[in-house]
Design a protein around this nucleic acid. Sequence first.
DNA 1: ACTCTGATGTACT
DNA 2: GTACATCAGAGTA
Length: 174
Amino acid sequence: MSLALPAPALAPLLLGASLTVRGCTGRIVETEAYTPDDPASHSFPGPTRRNAAMFGPPGHAYVYRIYGLHWCLNVVGLPGHAVLIRALEPLSGLEAMQARRGPGKPLCKGPGMLAEALGITGADDARPFDSADFSLTLDPPEAYLTGTRIGITKAADWPLRFGLTGSRHLSRGF
DNA sequence: ACTCTGATGTACT
DNA sequence: GTACATCAGAGTA
């Protein structure tokens, strides 16, 4: 299945998918869609050095730093379209994730947390998801939740947040 | 449970 | 200088 899709179609398709990053695996339970005509999207102003991967080939990563401290992982679809991976259900490589996150901390309950748990940094920007380091196996859900995106001020009412129904691993409820 | 705030890098005005 | 696709810790209740 090609990932060359508009973000609002790709985001729910990625729910349920198994994401493996260098030996650690999690099931994607929460995503958000960002499109080129969306004022909240990094692609809105057009291509720049930072967002270059968002305009690159589909099925690659777009990784950026947020608030100076955390990394966030996206899957690129059509040019200018990307899907932010917001939460995972940890499946394997739990010890490595725990070691990177620290004892007692949630592993993948938010975009910054999952990037830290999986060891993702800016070095992974533009990395393809069919490489030795990254792999993605789709398993689209029968049903999913829709809501408004978190932590943005522009286009705050656009219903572009998606989650797996009933998951206990969402960053927040819907 | 909640609200407030500090940390910190980049891109923008 | 200001705004940010965030998280953790401290405080209040």
